[in-house]
């Protein structure tokens, strides 16, 4: 792993984040953790079908999505995002209970930027977000 000598990443705290999960409690937890990290510009969607039109029209900077959802799963949402010319560079963090190696490999192949398995801690979420934007910005 290559770390630059300045480990603190200057993140835009105003970036617009979409949190997608079918369970409202999990959306609330993720939003709370993001708020603790200084990100207050968050919106919610309860599955890929509601998330996709929001992403297409909403100017989001970051997508945090669950995998297992009715309607459209997070993996399909990720594939749609990567196939969309306007959205294909959007950083995507998957926060999910799916914990099989095949699944993680599939998510990586579909172009996910980070993968957090539930149950997770605030520290892990922060670390992954920092890492994603360090890579994107650097």
């Amino acid at each position: 792993m290559t770390w630059s000598w300045h480990s603190e990443v200057a993140l835009d705290k105003n970036m617009k984040i979409l949190v997608v999960d079918d369970f409202s409690t999990m959306r609330r937890i993720v939003k709370n953790l993001l708020r603790d990290l200084g990100f207050t510009n968050t919106q919610e969607a309860d599955d890929g079908l509601t998330a996709l039109p929001m992403l297409q029209t909403g100017d989001f900077d970051f997508l945090v999505t669950d995998w297992n959802m009715p309607g459209m799963t997070g993996l399909d949402l990720l594939k749609h995002v990567r196939a969309d010319d306007k959205l294909k560079t959007l950083p995507v963090l998957m926060v999910t209970a799916e914990a099989k190696r095949d699944q993680i490999v599939a998510a990586a192949q579909a172009g996910v930027n980070g993968y957090v398995v539930k149950p997770f801690t605030a520290a892990v979420l922060k670390e992954k977000i920092d890492k994603i934007f360090e890579r994107v910005d650097g």
Binding site: N68, L75, E98, A99, K100, R101, V117
Partner: peptide, 15 residues
């Protein structure tokens, strides 16, 4: 496909 949480993490292929 999505399978939900893996209860037994000692299974083959589960992290």
């Amino acid at each position: 496909i999505a399978e939900g949480p893996q209860i037994d993490t000692s299974l083959e292929g589960v992290v």
